[in-house]
């Protein structure tokens, strides 16, 4: 018995906020930071056996200011390297690279990473905004399927 609204998240933030969500998501998936935020691009690996796949995040915008827009974050796990950065249009993208992986496998891993990033970002956005509006969180839980539920008192 309720009113239910389905929402498509929009990731619009500066690099420092987005990189925090990337860090949390990658940690949850067992990735470790290969190098910190590095200015410029062009850190692609050499070698013909390396497969690459790129995923652009729809409904995202990395805002200028704060940490800048030329930064990137590189994480690694089991020979897979994921480079998060801002594309020419300002959207968040992740470039996946790995040896011994198909393009489809890399795309799937990249997609899972981006879904985790979205979950982390939305969680922090909601909690921060609710606190600012003075809406108390009365219950919070993570379900078996990793769905995060936050319950707040209406103001």
């Amino acid at each position: 018995m309720s009113s239910v609204i389905l929402v498509t998240p929009l990731i619009i933030a500066n690099w420092s906020v987005i990189s925090a969500a990337v860090l949390g998501a990658c940690g949850a998936m067992g990735f470790t930071v290969a190098s910190g935020a590095v200015s410029g691009s062009g850190r692609a690996r050499s070698g013909s056996s390396v497969t690459r796949a790129e995923i652009e995040v729809e409904n995202s915008e990395v805002l200028a200011g704060g940490g800048g827009t030329d930064e990137e974050m590189v994480v690694e796990k089991d020979g897979v390297r994921a480079t998060f950065s801002r594309d020419a249009r300002g959207a968040l993208k992740v470039c996946m690279e790995g040896t011994g992986y198909s393009k489809g496998q890399l795309k799937q891993i990249g997609q899972e990473l981006m879904e985790q990033v979205t979950q982390q970002y939305v969680y922090h956005r909601v909690v921060t905004e609710l606190k600012e509006r003075g809406m108390p969180i009365v219950h919070e839980e993570v379900e078996a399927d990793r769905t995060v539920k936050i319950r707040v008192r209406n103001w």
């Binding site: 609204i5 879904e115 979950q119 939305v122 009365v138 769905t147 539920k149």
Partner: peptide, 14 residues
Amino acid sequence: EIEISISPTGQVTV
């Protein structure tokens, strides 16, 4: 109360 569910795939229900 208002309940916000954030699925692991990033889908959100309010």
